[in-house]
Design a protein around this nucleic acid. Structure first.
Lengths: 128, 128
DNA sequence: ATAAAACTTGGAGTTTACTCTAAGTCAAAC
DNA sequence: GTTTGACTTAGAGTAAACTCCAAGTTTTAT
């Protein structure tokens, strides 16, 4: 696949794809004889995986480390598992915080609903 | 309360507190005769609220708008409720995405666990 | 065959959200 | 009474994560 196709498929700009590759956030993509990137299915999977992890807020630095470990082969399986476990923990904690914020928003919205009703009654009274 | 006290209480730097006020992310804090900020309890509540909403990822722009509406008084109650409702929706959607990412991490970790076990067995065999 | 489109690289520029600096004021401690 | 420390402002600087640009291929279409 070309960079255009990958960019469209995963809704990631070409510049971002090149940038991610440059900083090691995805492994290097092979080029054809004239230097043009040819994304394999595995490359695509990396793009999709990184997009997903980034959107959940995993730090770029950590993901670069993960890719680095991956490229070092099977000897790093334990380290990769540990890295993911730590990130999983942090993600779960963040979601807990967000849940509390969500509940707080719900409460605030509820209070506003009531105030809107009060406001409407006031308006109605002033019509009389 | 002084800016130092507020900064310590909510773990937000003094610079950030001034910055938030400057851009209208919290209402203007009153100063004493010599120009020093004196945070009321309401000011503190704003700091805490904004800190919470920001940590959940609500955009600064939107929060500035919310503060602006608040300062316009009761006529904006409906608009404020709508704004919060929209943000609540987006937050819930983001949490849904994060939940999928979390599950994906769980799956990946599980697969890694199995591979670690396989690796250990290999090592054991090579010991014999 | 030549113009237009798509790609390459390295490096500069942008945006967001702070964070720091400089220059100055004011109150309190010694 | 002066120096130390906390505060003020306006504006400059920074880090992260892109995003854009320039100059140069290569491929595609006419």
């Amino acid at each position: 696949m070309t960079i255009t196709e990958v960019s469209e498929k995963y809704d990631v700009s070409q510049d971002t794809l090149r940038y991610y590759e440059r900083i090691g956030l995805i492994p290097r993509v092979n080029r054809n004889k004239s230097g043009v990137r040819n994304y394999t299915e595995e490359d695509c999977n990396w793009v999709e995986f990184i997009k997903c992890m980034r959107s959940a807020g995993l730090p770029i630095e950590v993901l670069i480390e993960y890719v680095g470990l991956f490229q070092k082969g099977d000897a790093t399986i334990g380290a990769r598992r540990e890295l993911l476990t730590e990130q999983r923990k942090q993600l779960a904690a963040k979601m807990e915080d967000m849940k509390k914020t969500l509940e707080r928003l719900d409460y605030k919205i509820e209070v506003y609903e009531q105030r809107v009703v009060v406001k409407e009654r006031e308006l109605k009274r002033s019509e009389d």
